[in-house]
Design a protein around this nucleic acid. Sequence first.
RNA 1: GCGGGGGUAGCAAAGCCUGGCCAAAUGUGCAGGGUUGAGGUCCCUGUCCCUUAGUGGGUUCGAGGGUUCAAAUCCCUUCCCCCGCACCA
Length: 969
Amino acid sequence: MDWDYTSIEKKWQDKWFESKAFEPKTDSSKKKFFFTIPYPYVSGTLHVGHGRTYTNGDVIARYKRMAGFNVLFPMAFHITGTPVLAISNKIKAGDAQTIALYKDYVGVYEKDEKKISGIVHSFTDPWAVVNYFSGKLINDFKSVGYSIDLSRQFTTGDAEYNKFIEWQFRKFKEKNYLKQADYPLLYCITDKNAVAEDDIKDGDTDSVEVQKFIAFKFAREDGSFIVSSTLRPETVFGITNMFVNPETGYELVEVDGEKLWLSAQAAEKLSYQNRKVKKLGEKKGGEFVGEIITGPLGNKIPILPAGFVDADNATGFVHSVPAHAPFDAVAIEELKKNKKELDRYKDKKLEEKVNAIKLISLISVPDFGEFPALELVQQMKIVNTRERQKLEKATKELYSKEFYGGKLKKNCGQFAGLSVADAKTRVGDELKAGGKAFDFFETNRAAECRCGGKVIAAIMSGQWFIDYNSAGWKEKSFECLKEMKVYPEKYRKQFEDIFNWLDKRPCARRRGLGTQLPFNNEWIIESLSDSTIYMSFYAIIKEIRANKIKPEQLTEEFFDFVYLGRGDVQVVAKKTLVKEDVLEKTREEFLYWYPLDHRHTAIAHISNHLSFFVFAHTAIFEKRHWPKAITLNDLLICEGKKMSKSKGNVILLNSISKTVGSDLFRLYCAHASDFGSVLDYRAKDAEAARKTFLKYVGAVRELSAALKSKAQDGKGEETSLSNWFVSKFESTLRDSTLALEEFRLRDYIQASFFDLLNAYDYFTKRASEGEKAFVAKKVLNKWALLLCPVTPHASEELWSEIGGKTIASLSQWPKFDSKAIDGKLEEEQSLVQSVLFDCRKIIELVKFKPKRAAIFVASKSKFEQVKKAVAGADEQSKVKSSDEAVRKFVEKNFFQLKRGLSSIDERKVLGEAKEFLEKELNLVIEIREETPGEQKSLKAMPLKPAVVLEYNVFNPREPIFLVWRNQGI
RNA sequence: GCGGGGGUAGCAAAGCCUGGCCAAAUGUGCAGGGUUGAGGUCCCUGUCCCUUAGUGGGUUCGAGGGUUCAAAUCCCUUCCCCCGCACCA
C-alpha cells in the first residue's frame, strides 16, 4: 500500500505549525484546558524515555482539544543549575570525554565534521549550549507530532524569568518559609565548592554520602583532650581503651577555646566544619602509647597502638569497645600476643595494661551471648586485623543485629532497657549536652573530585532552606492533594508519604545558572526550587513580550497585581511604567488560563518536583488557582534493560520519525503498557504494529470507496451484519471516549485500534459492497478521527482523503450514537462465530472430508425445558431436569442463564450467515431445527446449535438430510 | 532498615478494586495451511495437558494455607523482583 509515512508526517507537522494550530487565544466562550508536561533540561538530546512521557501527555492534550476545550499546552526550557555550566567548563578545560560526548550529541543533528567541531567549541559559552539544544529539542518535539504551543517558550535563565522567581522567593521569605542553617555537605577542597554525585569520581556507581560521627573527648592530665569518634555513641558504656596509629602525625589544635588532639587530616576537616581551628603543636602517634586518659563517663583507660587506625577517617583516634566491635576485639587479642610490638614503647607496664583489659558487655542481642563481637569473630575465623573485608562484614552484620534487635543492659545507667536504635541518638545528645562530645562529619568513603581535589564533608554555614514544616503549609498542601485527581490512583499514597516526610530542603547553591536569591545574591536558587509555579508564567509571558515590557518593570507590584490581584491598577501602572490596559490584559490572561488543569510527567518526580509544585502553589496562589490533576507514567526501559550511555542502548527521540515513524511510535508508547507499569520498549514490537496500522488505513479507504461507488447510490444495504459492525463501532467509540476521559490510554487503543480492526476483519470477510456502503455512511467520518489523538498525522491524511475540510486535530471529537448500540447484534455474531468454531473442530476430528453439513438450532420446547430447569433451581448444584443433557447444560452455564435466556432468532441469524459459513468451511450447509428422529440433532441447546456433518453408514457420499427428506421428516 | 509498587501462559501485557460468561483479552514468538516463481509481505488456523465427530475432563495466574456453592480476583503466612529515601537534574 502506498503510505509514505515520512512525507505524510512532515507534511502535517508543517501545516500545524505554519497555521499556528496549537496557539490558543483566550476565549471566554470556550472552556479552557491548561495542560503541561515539565520542560526538558537542555544539556543534551532527548531519548525515547522522554518520548513516552511527552507522547502520553500529547494524546491527552489532543483528545481534550477535540473534545471541545481551548487547550493550552506550552513548552519551555530548563537551564538552571550546574550541568550546563559544567559542560561549558569541561569543554573550556579541554576535557576529552566531554568533548567527544558533545560531538556525538551534535553529530545527531549535523553531518559536517568541521561544523560539529565548531559548534562544540562554541559551547565554552553556556548560552551557546542552551541556544543550540533548545532549538534542536523543538525540532525533536515537532517531529513526533506534539501539539505544543511554541509561542510561549522561554528559558529559566531569561531575565523575565529571573524576575518572576525573585518574586516567588520574596513571597516565601515574607511567609517565613525560608530558613538559614548550617548544613553538612560534600565539598571539594580544591574547587572550594559543594559537589554532587556527578562531580565525584565513580560517584554514580559508588555513592558517597555524609555520615555524622559523634566525637568523644578524653581528658589528658594537661587539660587537653584526645578526640575519638564513632557512629555508635551508645557503646560509650563499653569503652576499654583508646587506639592510636603509632606511625602517623597528630596535631594539637585550639578549637573554640579547647585544646584537642586529632590527626592532622581531621584537624583540617574540622576547619571546614564551621569551627575555628588553630594549630598549637604536633606529636607522633607512638608518643601517646601507654598514657592513661579519662573518658566521657569518668573512667580511666589506656592508649594502645594499632596499625589499622586510619588517620584520614574521622578524628584519627579510635576508642575501643571490644565486646561489640569485631575490629576492637581482634586488635586486642592480637596485641596481647605481640610482645615484640609492646616492647617497642617506653612504657614498661604496657603489657600489663593490655592484659588487664576486660571486655564490657553492654548490649543484649538475640542469638548472641555476652560478647557478640568475640563470637562472631570466632565463627568467621578472623584471626588478625589485616583481614579487613571479613572484619567489615562482621561489623556490618553485628551492627544491624544490634541496631534492630539489641537492648541496652543494666550497666548503661539511665539508658538501660532502651533499644539500640533509640539509645543511639539519646546517648549522643546527652553527651553533647554535657560538653563531652560534639558532631564530626565525615564521608562514608574516601572520595576524589573529578578535578582531582579531595572531597570531604563540610558544613555550609548559612545554607538556605525551604522549610516544608512551616506552620500551616502541609495542611494546605494536603487539602490541595485531596481535591486533586491523581492517576494512577495508586500514587496518591506515595504523595501523602512524601508530603509527611518533607522537611527542610536546601534551595540554593553557590554556583550554577539560574536566579539569585533577591535578598542574598551570593546564592543561586537551585534547579528544583525554581521550577514549581512556572506554569503560571506561560500564561503571561506572551503578553509581557508582546508589550515589550522590560525585565526591570517586572517588579513586586507587577506580579502582585497580575497573579494575586493586589494593588490598584493606576498605582501599579505608575510604579512599573506598564500601561493600565496592559496590566489588566495580563491579569486577564492569567485568570483565564489558571488554575493548571492537568500536569503529566514521570513518576520519578513524585518525591521532588511534583510535591514542591503542589506546596509552592498552595503557598503562593489563592485556592481557586491550585492545580487540579496530575497523571504519571512509569519508566521506559529498552529491550529489557535500563537505557544508559555506558550500555550504548539509548534510542534518541530524534531518530524515531526516520525509523519506525512517529505515529507508530506514539501508538506503541501509549499501548505497550499502562501508565502504572514500566514500559519495555522493543523496536521490533513497535514496528510490528505497522501491518495492523496499514490494515486500518486500508479499511478507511475501502469504506470510502464503497460509499463513493455509483452502484450503491449512497444508500447501502442494511443487514444484521452491517448493523452489527455499526453497533460494534459505536460501542467502541463509547468505550474509547470513556477511557480517554479517565486517561486509560492503553484501553482506548486496545478498543479503538486492535479490537475494532479485528471486528472489521470479520465484517469485511462477509460483507457485500452494499453492506460496506451502509457502514461507511454511518461510521466513516468518525473512524477517521477516532485515532487522531494517538496517530495524528495519519488521521489528518485520511481525514483529508475522505474529504474532511478542517484540520482533523481541530475537529470535534465524534459523539457515539447510543441508539445504534445493540447487544443482541453482538450476540448474534458470536453465535455465528461459535458455530464456525465448532464446525472446524469437528471437521478436524473426522476422518473424511465432508461436503455438506446440517446445523440444528434448539427447538422451542428445548428452550422451555432449559427455562424451567433454570427457574427451578436456586443453586448451581440443584439443577433438575428430565433430560440429562439439559441438566448438564444448565448446570454448566447456570450463572449466565440466570441472567436471562437469549432471545435472538438463531435460525434467521444462521440463515443470513449461511453463505459465509459455506465459504469459510467449504461445505454446503442447511439450517434446520432439531429433529426428533436424528439423535445428534437433539444435542442442540440455546446458542449451541448441533452440527451434523454428512455421513451415512451405508453410503458416505449421500448427504444425511437427503435421507431425512426421503423419510419424509 | 523505612516507605511505595509488583510477581499472570515461550516473551510482553490486560484482568484483581466491584469473586461467577476466565484456560484467562491483545500483541509478539512458534507451528500448520493458503496466496506467491522461491523467500519475505499478506491472509487463515492453531498454540497448558489429556480426551472426543465438537459443546468433555484435568492442572494452572510466585509458594503455602484460609473464607466461599464458586478465587487470578477477598483474608493470612512466606519467598522473590523493582523504585524512592533529599539538596541531584
